[in-house]
Design a protein around this nucleic acid. Structure first.
Lengths: 120, 120, 120, 120
DNA sequence: GTGGTCTAGACCACG
DNA sequence: GTGGTCTAGACCACT
């Protein structure tokens, strides 16, 4: 469900955050589902519980998960549409940004147009 | 010619690298032009010379500038087309990446198409 | 009679304590009334008996309820006025505290006065 | 500037957060001021740097401080009015809450009124 | 020097 | 069992 790339420069806790979100968006995790406990995931990934805890706390701050004391940690009700919307915003900015850069570089509109058409 | 944002999470030396490249692509700096000495630029930006030196080393490694001992540091002959090509590649990947993400999120082709059309 | 919010950061046993007291103050529970057994309430709330027991122990320690072995658990004779007085003290401190903070923040007496008047 | 109460049940990092904010509100810390480094404050308070770091990260997330990489950590420009407004909101809710509780307890309006008047 | 990240433990309250 | 907090170190990139 979560896989860590130890060679990545991206902090482990960020990798966990992103992959958890991805799992929700992809539908592998649904609202109400329980996710592995801090200790369990730490064991699975061979990392320390503190790192997992940091990821979980950030996910909770972003209302993606919620913890029920003593019971475990769960995907929140609104997580799925929330994340999908965020990811879409991200992707749109990326495209917008790329096109803006191409224009700044003086690439002809015709070339940009054919690039875009080839991608749809 | 170069402006630093101390609040940005992007390292200062990277900001220098990118802005130098941008200056070349935009034509503000042409092959053969001399750029400020490490100490001069450090003074202008109120940062330590080490940070500027790190940026210059990386630019030299990428064959964007070259140092002639005792004379100064200069934009290399081939810098301009080289950088333009690199930046274009970057921008194209960005667009490609964004579109790929939108598709993965299940955004309808029609919506993607109208987004792209609105950007050209 | 008692409703638990599993999402609250307030421990469940504290929620039980407060709601029991509230029920007494509001008159829903009167001195001499029997309250549900530990097991019964635990079943109703879908929580473990230990949590209910912890709440009952604390309520007993505060002389709000008393257990008659073999008969059940009951609201004590003096519970009602005792709790009303405690809650009133709490509320008064809250107001006093808030006003003190507003003064410390330099809020004008006039503004404080109009705030208070709007609340009566 | 910051004093820790080891006997308090409030987490140390929260104590640091609150006292830093208080220092800003009180004017002991002004926008642009540098605050002690993570290691320095940890030494002063005889706690571990991790605990200080956690407090600083939360303060940064709340836009009270900002870090300039390699240089240190500073009070942000807008911190002072931001915090004053937050604290005022807090105090007002406290008063409102207390008054609401008094009414729920059936305290006579006249008594509430004289309490409030005694506080102004 | 600075903060950011991580490890490998520990103790606590809660359920 | 759960997560929250803390300790006492370490390494890293950046300045």
């Amino acid at each position: 469900m979560v896989r860590i790339d130890g060679r990545s420069s991206q902090p482990i806790y960020e990798q966990i955050i992103n992959q958890m979100k991805q799992n929700v968006i992809a539908g592998y995790l649904k609202p109400g589902d329980m996710i592995p406990s801090v200790r369990r995931l730490a064991l699975d990934l061979s990392i320390t519980p503190g790192t997992v805890a940091k990821a979980y706390q950030e996910l909770e701050r972003q209302h993606v998960i919620e913890t029920l004391r003593g019971k475990g940690t769960f995907i929140t009700a609104g997580a799925s549409p929330l994340l999908a919307e965020q990811k879409k915003e991200e992707a749109v900015s990326k495209v917008r940004d790329g096109v803006r850069q191409l224009k700044e570089l003086g690439v002809a509109d015709g070339e940009i147009r054919s690039l875009l058409n080839s991608l749809i």
